[in-house]
Design a binder for these strands. Structure first.
Lengths: 189, 189
DNA sequence: ATGCGATTTTGATTTTTCTCAAATTTTTCG
DNA sequence: CGAAAAATTTGAGAAAAATCAAAATCGCAT
């Protein structure tokens, strides 16, 4: 069901019947297994997806190491920001960390909706604003000085991530060594 | 003159004469001296401003230290993202680092423009997308491991900031000690 | 030009974090 | 269930960065 997405959009601005009809036609539901990639490095992000169930992370390569850029879960709208907005090849991958169900719409259909249903631009703007604010919050977190401060902030704001994601993936997100994070978690630091 | 702002907006989407008229009426030009605050901590960000000339930084307090969150300069649109979008009191301050000229519009007028001139939402969305991408780029920079890597990345992408801003302000932005940054700059690290 | 305050640089030492290596625990799947 | 793989924890030593203290330089106002 696409219901939870409709609820989200309607909470921003009432949608016309035609727009609802258009979205219902264009939205595609997809399922992934844990470990599957929704977006590969070098590929242009062609879809924007709403997570019905499960969790993903985006990551990029640096010196052959996978660096996590963020985690997203049910209720979130996911894209590779830069690639989708600029329609250039992505430096990021998006990986399912759990069995995953998403509803997605492609770039062209989305742009069509923006052009033909003016109120939909409000949805687009408000959602973009929301994700921008969240991006700034991650910046706030990463500028914390010590590894322990970063960990504690993440624990406070996103305890679910610490429960559901791997230590190694969280470590690269925080810019901390895997072993250091393990020591922090077990109270040795 | 508000010309450079109009050029920016028109490059995103053609604006109707009425909208241009509305903006011309509502935009207010303000000048600040170096060191002046455009936004104080605890104040709700009421204006979104386009920088005609000069540079600013946003910062917040942590343990009585001012932590720089970003630098913005001529051609940029500046706000305290979180406070303006959510209309809650800001944890950030915005400080002029040089003599500054901005053109600003207040929150209510902007919301009015979004409601009455649908095409203006496109401007809003596209600008927000652009700043979102830039925010993600800062995250990329901060996740670099060593202090030197962060410095070199900033030098590569924003050499003007390194020229125009104080070492101490750049240091808190990068999450690096002032003395460490000084040593990196002089090649001792 | 000159002196004061702010900013930046330099030095020595301590603390934090990383690295490498290995042991342990957990998860996956035939 | 049980073996293999993956993930996490632990330990010891090395490297990076922070801290504290002081000197040097810069920028501005008189």
């Amino acid at each position: 069901m696409v219901n939870s997405l409709v609820v989200l959009l309607q909470s921003i601005v009432p949608l016309s019947d035609e727009l609802m009809q258009f979205l219902a036609e264009k939205l595609e539901t997809k399922n992934y297994d844990s470990g599957d990639l929704l977006l590969h490095e070098g590929q242009v992000a062609n879809n924007i997806a709403f997570i019905e169930k499960g969790m993903v992370r985006s990551y990029y390569f640096k010196d052959n190491e996978k660096i996590t850029s963020w985690f997203m879960k049910e209720g979130d709208v996911i894209i590779s920001v830069e690639s989708f907005f600029t329609q250039k090849p992505s430096y990021e991958c998006i990986e399912a960390l759990e069995p995953l169900t998403v509803h997605q719409i492609n770039y062209n259909d989305l742009q069509y909706a923006y052009r033909h249903y003016p109120e939909f631009n409000i949805c687009g703007r408000v959602l973009t604003e929301k994700y921008y604010v969240m991006s700034e919050e991650r910046l706030y977190m990463l500028r914390k000085r010590t590894s322990k401060e970063k960990y504690l902030y993440l624990l406070d704001k996103h305890p679910d991530i610490l429960r559901r994601a791997r230590v190694g993936d969280i470590a690269t997100f925080l810019g901390v060594n895997l072993e250091t994070l393990s020591r922090i978690r077990s109270g040795k630091i």
